[in-house]
């Protein structure tokens, strides 16, 4: 099957290893992966700031990149993916936008729901805390949510459990927001940083060596705080762990 790789702009610029791990992981599981080279940004930073009306150009560009013969479009970020899934439209290319929206998958949901991955040749012998990023969880529903009365499930965790040697820690607050929130991280800096520190405290209390998640933006925020605190704890995108060893 042919997969179009959608790499968020900040992952492209700051976390190329996450994109490489995603690419390799998909290839390992038999996908033919194409990476359209003219991707810029999904438009979420503007849209979440109240300027969705300015994202027409981003939408057009996204369609230019992904109106190509692929079966699926996969992204290692729940947040960017959710934005495109909910807001991608173009007046003159309505059908193309609709077709693209129908092909979009977040990485872990793609691995679980489409590729039905049951084993991984990966090893990561560490204590790992999973950060549930809100847009993947509550938006794309890749995991159950503590607020709802519904059976438990977690696509990211079901994949991590296939990794040899990994030990997933329990958290006191299983799905509390880290406080990144896009431009919220600077506009509401005090609360944003406090939320991040509190998330980290929970992971440290349960002796995490690594914090992982399916959204690099949350991890970047947590990483910024960990580094400032001089902590040895590192963040790793889930693709890097699933592709490890």
């Amino acid at each position: 099957m042919k997969v179009g790789l959608f790499i968020p702009c900040y992952v492209d610029q700051f976390y190329p290893n996450v994109a490489i791990a995603t690419l390799q992981l998909l290839e390992k599981h038999g996908c033919e992966v194409v990476f359209p080279l003219k991707q810029t940004c999904c438009g979420q930073p503007m849209a979440n700031s109240g300027y969705e009306h300015l994202t027409g150009g981003c939408n057009e560009n996204f369609i230019d990149n992904f109106d190509v013969p692929v079966d699926y479009i996969v992204c290692p970020s729940g947040s960017c993916l959710l934005h495109v899934k909910e807001h991608l439209h173009a007046e003159t290319r309505h059908e193309a936008a609709k077709a693209i929206r129908g092909k979009l998958y977040e990485l872990t949901e793609f691995l679980v729901d489409v590729l039905h991955v049951k084993n991984l040749k990966a090893s990561f012998p560490h204590k790992v805390g999973v950060h549930q990023s809100c847009h993947g969880q509550r938006g794309l529903k890749i995991s159950s949510m503590t607020e709802l009365v519904a059976p438990y499930f977690s696509k990211p965790e079901s994949l991590l459990n296939l990794v040899e040697g990994i030990e997933l820690i329990e958290l006191d607050r299983k799905d509390e927001c880290c406080g990144f929130g896009g431009t919220f991280c600077v506009a509401e800096e005090a609360v944003s940083a406090k939320m991040g520190k509190d998330r980290i405290k929970d992971h440290l209390k349960h002796e995490a060596e690594f914090i992982t998640g399916a959204d690099m933006s949350c991890l970047m925020h947590l990483q910024g705080i960990l580094k400032r605190q001089g902590s040895k704890v590192e963040v790793k995108h889930i693709a890097e762990i699933l592709n490890a060893g």
Binding site: N48, G50, C134, H135, R138, M145, E147, C177, G181, F184
Partner: peptide, 12 residues
């Protein structure tokens, strides 16, 4: 409306 990360817990 900007005093939120849009985490969605409120709606849940």
């Amino acid at each position: 409306p900007f005093a939120s990360t849009l985490c969605g817990s409120c709606s849940n």
